[in-house]
Design a protein around this nucleic acid. Structure first.
Lengths: 195, 195
DNA sequence: CGCGACGTTGATTTGCCTCAACGATTGTGG
DNA sequence: CCACAATCGTTGAGGCAAATCAACGTCGCG
């Protein structure tokens, strides 16, 4: 189990003694998620919060017409979960699967609660984590409401250049809220402009 | 200062002793925000997290074409802030103003930090609060990506019937991500269908 | 009263979608 | 190691949901 990245991630917001680190790590479970393999499926309860050590995942919902809507990507150092389901421990609507073969660490809801009790500092850690997610989510909302598709794409490539290396183009289109065909046309236009 | 509602709000997630309640309340400040009065303006640092006791507020950004985009409403019992600015204490992009004459309570960032130190339970309280906001924000993203304007409007009226009593129609249109004209047409269509 | 904010309605335009066809890769079973 | 299917991106023609623009009626308020 490669724990460097996650300890580093935690250390950005709270500092732990060696004993606390040990407790934390003992509550984690490691897993590999292969490319295209489902890690969480719609209708299941999201038992674990997932930390990506290596590789890349995507989280998405499927609407009544069978269309995928990518809600989030997760790269090394990022957390991903169906927050609604994870918090309520009721069946959720999110699917999570590997974009490439990946290494992840799991913290179950039960273990998270244990962690809060044994090392209360983690309340702060997760508060900050969730605060940052909220800021990002709201920013994305604003972008979707106020920018045209082409601008959203340019923002995206600037903000998350590394995702482009992992995610197929149609997943990026889905994340941006447009069809793959239309993203292709945007890219064509931009490439022509460039030259 | 009417503190019943906010103590009730806190009690939903953590329980406080009388002494802790006293500390908490001593860190709050009360204020009235009149209809159409700005409570927070773009470019300012969001010093306070705002709890609505009575009335209603809206939070919105203004894009480069001068178009308002309503990010959130806040009714009695709800919190509102420019999360990005509040957390980082850097100038933000959100505007907040009264939809009607309102009573609010303010918790400044400094006092919040004090609160975390003096009553660590509040770390948990705000974690849960932010978790719920995040779930709502993500759900809204999904809706915007997967539903047509009419469906979004129907969802909205079902989920937030009370907002309709306070917010003018063009603010609701903005929240839904459509123009006021188009919302008017949707409502016309629905009314005709109804009868 | 008269002005500004608000909602409505219609004509026209447009950003993005749908559908369909096609090449280039990838991967998989025989 | 090859044939074949599946996945992925591209391109074009046509269509639709929602935007834009403009005109108008109503209401509340200084």
């Amino acid at each position: 189990m490669n724990t460097d990245l996650i300890l580093q991630n935690v250390a950005r917001h709270i500092s732990l003694t060696e004993a606390e680190k040990k407790i934390f790590l003992s509550l984690l479970q490691s897993k590999t998620v292969k490319r295209r393999q489902s890690h969480l499926a719609e209708g299941e309860v999201c038992v674990d919060s997932t930390f990506v050590v290596q590789g890349a995942l995507k989280g998405f919902t499927v609407d009544k017409n069978g269309i995928e809507h990518v809600i989030s990507f997760a790269l090394p150092g990022w957390w991903i979960a169906d927050m609604y389901s994870f918090i309520s421990q009721k069946p959720g609507t999110l699917n999570i699967e590997g974009l490439v073969d990946s290494e992840v660490l799991l913290l179950s809801r039960t273990n998270q609660q244990k962690l809060y009790e044994e090392v209360p500092k983690f309340e702060r850690f997760y508060r900050i984590l969730v605060e940052n997610s909220l800021v990002a989510s709201q920013q994305r909302l604003v972008n979707n409401l106020s920018l045209a598709a082409e601008e959203r794409y340019l923002h995206f490539t600037e903000k998350y250049p590394s995702i482009i290396e992992y995610a197929p183009q149609h997943s990026i289109a889905s994340y941006l809220g447009i069809t793959p065909e239309f993203l292709s046309k945007i890219r064509g236009r931009l490439a022509r402009k460039q030259s």
